[in-house]
Design a protein around this nucleic acid. Structure first.
Length: 257
DNA sequence: ATGACTCAATTCTTGAGA
């Protein structure tokens, strides 16, 4: 089976591109971020027409996450993270599907930093870590996949110097990400590509795509029970170059049965 | 260079993204 993640930057604007990607690459599970629609605007019937069933957590205007499964119903386990009841951002949804726990995340960007948005990012990462430790304690095969908005290492960005002031690059952001790895989670792309140089995002601005000025911020973290089953992983880079593309490219992990 | 581009919103301008 393959579990994929795609920050689509607006499901309404991206629907033709998204359906095309699903039909061409046919992931078993597809986790989406930045659907940017309220729950009632989610085009579930369009996905059912091509054999995918979904759960989603929307929000007006921005954020929003969804989990799609090929020929199966994702069984929702949780939406949102504990620890901050007043937080109304739709950034987390978790389900059991095909015998795997799948959590789809859209981690706060945190810019500008320093400031309240960066503080929120770090608090959100603490809350995520708490939930991931709970999942790890269940000792189930699990993947926490999505847009982490963290560049883990300097080899994961076209220019560490140019990006240094960004919230995605801050030591506090990177430390919080490393704590997840220290808890026993495996960064699938990093394990298979330790040399770096793999990007999942290219800004719309300043010809970033044409210049290959990208970075790696979409990650798949595997629990020990699932890391043993990792057969391969990759980035569907070509989709970033199509008409009306998202600024992210899809990432995926292939798992042995 | 406080830029560049794109999306959503009862759109003609602003907030958000990264």
């Amino acid at each position: 089976m393959r579990v994929a993640s795609f920050n689509i930057n607006g499901i309404k604007a991206r629907l033709p591109r998204l359906l095309e990607w699903l039909e061409e690459t046919r992931p078993s599970v597809a986790c989406l971020q930045e659907i940017k629609t309220q729950d009632e605007g989610f085009p579930a019937s369009e996905f059912e027409k091509i054999g995918y069933r979904a759960i989603w957590h929307g929000q007006k205007g921005f954020n929003g996450v969804a989990i799609l499964a090929d020929g199966a119903d994702p069984v929702e386990v949780q939406r949102g993270l504990a620890g901050e009841p007043e937080d109304e951002h739709s950034r987390y949804i978790e389900a059991d599907v095909f015998g795997v726990r799948v959590a789809c995340i859209y981690l706060p960007n945190g810019n500008p930093q320093p400031g309240p948005k960066f503080d929120y990012k770090l608090r959100w990462m603490d809350r995520l870590r708490s939930r991931m430790r709970e999942i790890a304690a269940e000792e189930v095969p699990a993947v926490v996949i999505g847009d982490y908005n963290v560049v883990p290492n300097d080899c994961d960005v076209w220019s560490a110097a140019a990006m240094a002031p960004d919230a995605l690059m801050q030591p506090a952001s990177r430390d919080a990400y490393r704590r997840l790895l220290h808890d026993g989670w495996t960064d699938a792309l990093a394990m298979h590509n330790p040399q770096g140089g793999i990007w999942t995002f290219w800004d719309y601005q300043a010809g970033a795509w044409q210049r290959d000025h990208g970075f790696r911020i979409d990650h798949a973290l595997l629990s020990p029970e699932l890391a043993d089953r990792l057969a391969g992983c990759g980035v569907d880079k070509e989709y970033r170059g199509r008409e009306k593309a998202s600024d992210h490219a899809p990432v995926w992990v292939a798992l042995r049965e």
